Amino acid sequence: MQLAFVLVEPKVPENVGAAARALCTMGFGELWLVNSDLHTRPEAHWLAHGSDHILDNARIFPDLAAVRNSVDLLMGTSAKPRHQRQDWHAPAALRQALASKGTSVATAALVFGREDRGLSNEELALCDLLTGIPMKVAYPSLNLAQSVMLYAWEMSGLSLPAQAQAEPAHNEVRLGALRQRLETLLPMLEAPAQGKLSQWIFQRLPLLTERDVGFVHTLCGNIERAVSRHKR
Score class of each variant (00 low, 15 high):
residue 50 G to E: 07
residue 117 R to M: 03
residue 133 I to A: 05
residue 211 R to C: 07
residue 3 L to I: 09
residue 111 V to D: 03
residue 123 E to Q: 14
residue 66 A to S: 15
residue 186 L to I: 12
residue 113 G to M: 06
residue 107 T to V: 04
residue 92 A to L: 10
residue 68 R to L: 06
residue 225 R to W: 11
residue 27 G to N: 09
residue 4 A to Y: 06
residue 204 R to Y: 14
residue 29 G to I: 01
residue 181 R to L: 03
residue 183 E to M: 10
residue 209 T to C: 11
residue 180 Q to K: 11
residue 109 A to G: 12
residue 83 H to K: 15
residue 23 L to K: 03
residue 55 L to M: 05
residue 217 H to G: 11
residue 53 H to C: 07
residue 83 H to L: 15
residue 120 S to K: 08
residue 42 P to W: 08
residue 60 I to S: 09
residue 92 A to S: 06
residue 185 L to W: 03
residue 158 L to K: 01
residue 87 D to V: 14
residue 90 A to K: 08
residue 117 R to E: 08
residue 44 A to M: 03
residue 157 G to F: 05
residue 220 C to K: 02
residue 103 T to V: 13
residue 137 V to T: 12
residue 74 L to Q: 13
residue 167 E to G: 13
residue 29 G to F: 02
residue 165 Q to C: 01
residue 189 L to I: 05
residue 44 A to L: 13
residue 207 L to I: 07
residue 177 A to D: 11
residue 61 F to L: 11
residue 58 A to D: 15
residue 166 A to E: 03
residue 28 F to H: 14
residue 194 Q to E: 11
residue 5 F to V: 07
residue 107 T to E: 00
residue 155 M to G: 09
residue 160 L to Q: 12
residue 48 A to I: 06
residue 122 E to W: 02
residue 60 I to M: 10
residue 175 L to Q: 09
residue 77 T to N: 05
residue 126 L to R: 10
residue 216 V to H: 03
residue 119 L to A: 00
residue 171 N to C: 08
residue 191 A to Q: 13
residue 18 A to L: 00
residue 76 G to N: 00
residue 91 P to I: 12
residue 222 N to P: 00
residue 57 N to R: 15
residue 147 S to W: 08
residue 195 G to N: 07
residue 128 D to V: 13
residue 230 H to D: 01
residue 78 S to P: 12
residue 43 E to Q: 14
residue 60 I to P: 00
residue 85 R to E: 15
residue 224 E to M: 04
residue 175 L to H: 10
residue 193 A to V: 01
residue 95 R to L: 01
residue 118 G to D: 13
residue 194 Q to W: 08
residue 5 F to L: 08
residue 3 L to S: 05
residue 79 A to W: 07
residue 108 A to Q: 14
residue 183 E to Q: 06
residue 110 L to M: 09
residue 96 Q to E: 12
residue 206 P to I: 10
residue 172 E to C: 04
residue 44 A to E: 09
residue 128 D to E: 05
residue 31 L to R: 10
residue 21 R to C: 00
residue 152 A to Q: 11
residue 178 L to N: 04
residue 225 R to M: 10
residue 119 L to G: 02
